[in-house]
């Protein structure tokens, strides 16, 4: 064994120990979710369920409408993502390529919204949504986040890297701005759009604060809200809590494993998390 081998072995040992600590909460929730009630109270520290069972999952779905929660989160996250893509594409194109009076000021004002902390806005946002009659609705959950400065800024930076020549060719062919956007910019920006989509979807899926404020009825709860409120209900045991936790986390983890690069890029570039 040379000195290099020893260093490498130490590196791997540290990385593996770290990985075990990082993974343990995931594993522990997963393992608990498959344990019988007996296991949890008499063998709570067994690494594996002695008698793996789906009963926690079954009772979670019967005690609370987790299927509905998942559907709500999917609708809200997909709707938010779609609308943010639309508003971002349109305004990013205008900011990147069009000349109009007040462009710089309007752009600066848009960017300024990034500095406003959510907590200052929450009370009046709540009041606005209630006054618009959108409390406890999908619109109320989606519309406040239908446009964000982060997506617009990110996409504008990307649009600016697209060579003018492409556009000129389209103009000569008689294309208007909407068609140029549709047939030139959007196809060329697929990686950037994918990054935004993943990031917005994840952010929306994990968002808890906003649904907590405006959702009233059980049917409109998103998965995060449903999970948090499940915790406060009586007569539920830990195997079921962990099953609920796994159900709420699995979709986003699967998406992460599929599109890992976009996740990492989206989160690091925009610097925002759930």
């Amino acid at each position: 064994m040379t000195k290099r081998h020893v260093t490498l072995a130490i590196k791997y040992a540290v990385l593996a120990a770290g990985a075990i600590i990082m993974l343990f909460p995931f594993y522990w929730a997963l393992s608990t979710s498959f344990k019988e009630l007996r296991d949890i109270y008499f063998e709570p520290y067994g690494m594996f369920p002695t008698n793996p069972t789906f009963s926690n999952y079954i009772s979670v779905f019967s005690k609370a409408p987790f299927g509905r929660y998942l559907l709500n989160s999917l609708v809200v996250a997909a709707g938010t993502t779609f609308l943010q893509l639309v508003t971002a594409c349109l305004s990013a194109y205008a900011f990147a390529r069009m000349r109009f009076r007040g462009r710089e000021i309007i752009f600066f004002l848009f960017l300024a919204t990034m500095m406003i902390p959510q907590q200052i806005l929450m009370i009046p946002q709540y009041l606005v949504v209630m006054r618009l009659g959108m409390g406890d609705t999908y619109q109320g959950l989606i519309l406040p986040y239908a446009a964000t400065a982060v997506s617009i800024f990110f996409l504008r930076q990307f649009f600016r890297t697209i060579p003018k020549d492409f556009e000129d060719a389209a103009i000569i062919d008689g294309c208007g701005p909407l068609r140029i956007l549709r047939y030139v910019f959007i196809p060329l920006s697929k990686p950037a759009l994918a990054t935004i989509s993943i990031f917005v979807f994840m952010w929306s899926w994990n968002n808890y604060f906003w649904p907590l404020l405006i959702v009233d009825s059980t049917e409109m709860r998103t998965i995060q809200l449903g999970l948090a409120l499940f915790r406060t209900e009586g007569g539920i045991q830990w195997g079921e809590f962990m099953a609920g936790t796994v159900i709420s986390t699995l979709p986003i983890l699967i998406l992460y494993f599929i599109a890992q690069k976009q996740f990492v890029k989206g989160i690091t570039l925009t610097g925002m998390k759930g």
Binding site: P25, L227, L253
Partner: peptide, 10 residues
């Protein structure tokens, strides 16, 4: 990176 994408609630 897994904990970063996990929701704070879960």
């Amino acid at each position: 990176f897994m904990p970063v994408v996990t929701s704070p609630i879960a």
